[in-house]
């Protein structure tokens, strides 16, 4: 039996057990420079798998009173995850979490672009992206562990890598109430290598050009990250957007398989590439998130 048939649930159960053993050790510090009249901005640091210190930006409405809805924006594939503006900051907790290797979560190692996607991919236990996904789970734990406000409904959102992190975190954390995933990175899907890929997924093609004999090994390493495999466990409603011409994040065929396996999916397909729905979808997403979070 090849390694990529290993039960993903068993792997994530094991990683979750490891996370449970690690104290969150959360530090939260108000950032006076970026705080606004309507919301305060905080810098949070917490501990993830292997003892890595991770960073996120978190904003809390100044008028927070009682349970506050929360929006957790998972990171894109890139080194910076900044304080993305959203008008929801005045009514919801908004968290922008980073994963290991990104800016401010880079004390141990710094991610390279291109490069991160295949770092250590020859074995599942050295594959950095497994840890990156575990960091997304840890971000949910940090959101629930912060002491700035009581957390109400939680929506996850993200584009590309952030979309895939959102789906996997929702599959593993039943506390999540909604997911808006745009062109989620299809890393781990067994059909992925059959597509004509561009960056960032083309990092896999680059890797296989140099190490053609490792195809089975990398399929095995990636398998637990397959959003299509995780989809049936996502109980929360999902707003999913895809680009018809996307070859870099979520090829349409895989995106459609994903939509079919999500129990509650509102699929929107746009005539775009990796940018997905662009502005029209951002309007749809904003309204959808407001509805899911109950902030009108």
């Amino acid at each position: 039996m090849t390694e990529h048939r290993t039960d993903p649930d068993a792997i994530w159960d094991s990683l979750d057990r490891q996370l449970e053993q690690i104290p969150l050790d959360l530090e939260q510090e108000r950032d006076a420079f970026y705080s606004q009249p309507d919301w305060d901005v905080y810098r949070l640091h917490y501990t993830g798998l292997d003892g890595y210190r991770l960073f996120c930006w978190l904003s809390a409405p100044v008028s927070a009173n009682g349970p506050v809805p929360a929006l957790l924006r998972m990171p894109d594939y890139g080194s910076v995850h900044d304080i993305v503006y959203t008008p929801l900051r005045s009514v919801a907790l908004v968290m922008n979490a980073t994963h290991r290797g990104q800016r401010q979560s880079e004390s141990v190692f710094q991610a390279n672009y291109p490069g991160l996607l295949t770092q250590g991919i020859e074995r599942q236990d050295t594959f950095v992206m497994m840890r990156v996904f575990a960091d997304a789970l840890r971000a949910v734990d940090a959101l629930l562990g912060q002491t700035l406000a009581e957390v109400g409904p939680i929506a996850l959102t993200g584009n590309g890598l952030g979309g895939a992190l959102s789906l996997l975190a929702a599959a593993r954390r039943p506390r999540i109430t909604a997911v808006a995933a745009d062109t989620p990175l299809a890393l781990g899907h067994p059909e992925l290598l059959e597509h004509d890929l561009v960056y960032p997924l083309a990092e896999l093609t680059d890797y296989l050009r140099v190490y053609p004999h490792r195809k089975e090994a990398i399929l095995g390493s990636m398998a637990p990250l397959d959003p299509v495999a995780a989809a049936p466990k996502v109980e929360a409603p999902v707003l999913l957007s895809l680009g018809r011409r996307d070859r870099g994040l979520c090829p349409l065929r895989i995106g459609e398989l994903l939509a079919a396996r999500l129990p509650h999916c509102d699929l929107r397909v746009y005539d775009g590439a990796s940018e997905g729905g662009g502005h029209p979808h951002s309007v749809v997403r904003e309204a959808w998130l407001r509805e899911q979070l109950g902030v009108g």
């Binding site: 746009y270 005539d271 775009g272 590439a273 940018e275 662009g278 502005h279 029209p280 951002s282």
Partner: peptide, 9 residues
């Protein structure tokens, strides 16, 4: 006309 920052198809 119907595009946002950086995402005109």
């Amino acid at each position: 006309p119907d595009s946002g920052h950086g995402n005109a198809h």
